[in-house]
């Protein structure tokens, strides 16, 4: 990889890395637009969510809650819990954008979604050895691409409305994107365990109120990965083996 690529080439690399994700972001955005309309929510409110909130899964959840007549406090609390994972993303990204000015940091914060985070953090980690100082242009290219696609697809969903049948399974498309992003990251036992524990707990804890099950499951998966990564388990095993040998 050539060192010190230009801002422009990094920006376009970010665009190119994110475009394939449109195949699933677009149906998901259409689903958000269409589902709100079917539930009788004003089109202006549905459309405003996409630029103001810019977080797909919490938008879909909020529209379901509005449709079922939930009070404002429940909506805001759900948004807080469902989007708590962004704190983990922010903490992970922070060391990479430490040297940027406040303006850049505030701009990049706005584009911090699952997809942009996953695409950008793998690029940051990959290029760490080369010390590429302008990788935030890659992030910006990825963020703007996802943002444009999200706004456009929500609008299309509003236009098509109830013409989109549920059997298309548009919400499944986002799961496929996450599979495409996660599987290449399963490089060692620790990562595989984190994925398996996180996934299993999410299913087992899905009955917890306000989507707390998702956050708890994620923490469980992270702890499982850490246990292997930091040798919490293998150190114990080594100690036990040592003890057994001493006994002999």
């Amino acid at each position: 990889m050539p060192e010190n690529q230009s801002n422009r080439s990094l920006f376009w690399a970010g665009v190119r890395a994110t475009l394939p994700l449109m195949t699933s972001v677009a149906p998901f955005g259409m689903l958000v637009g269409a589902s709100g309309l079917t539930a009788g929510i004003p089109a202006g409110v549905i459309m405003a969510m996409s630029p103001v909130v810019f977080a797909g899964s919490s938008q879909l959840l909020a529209l379901q809650l509005i449709a079922s007549g939930s009070p404002a406090l429940v909506l805001l609390l759900t948004t807080l819990v469902v989007n708590l994972r962004h704190v983990l993303y922010g903490i992970s990204l922070a060391p990479h954008i430490r040297s940027l000015g406040r303006g850049w940091q505030w701009l990049l914060a706005y584009f911090m979604t699952d997809e942009v985070f996953a695409v950008s953090i793998s690029r940051y980690n990959q290029d760490e050895a080369v010390a590429q100082p302008n990788l935030h242009w890659f992030y910006l290219g990825s963020g703007l691409t996802l943002w444009s696609g999200w706004q456009a697809s929500t609008a299309i969903g509003l236009l098509l409305g109830s013409q989109i049948p549920a059997s298309w399974g548009l919400d499944f498309a986002i799961a496929l994107t996450f599979i495409a992003l996660v599987v290449p990251a399963l490089a060692d036992q620790a990562a595989v365990l984190a994925a398996l524990v996180g996934g299993s707990l999410a299913v087992l804890l899905s009955r917890l109120p306000y989507n707390l099950g998702l956050v708890t499951a994620a923490l469980g998966g992270i702890l499982a990965g850490m246990a292997v990564d930091l040798g919490w388990l293998s150190r114990n095993r080594a100690v036990k083996q040592g003890e057994e040998e001493n006994i002999r």
Binding site: S92, F117, V182, A195, G198, L201, A218, G221, I222
Partner: peptide, 10 residues
């Protein structure tokens, strides 16, 4: 492990 665990859960 944040991205792997969160995305797998979803």
């Amino acid at each position: 492990f944040v991205p792997v665990a969160v995305l797998s859960a979803i």
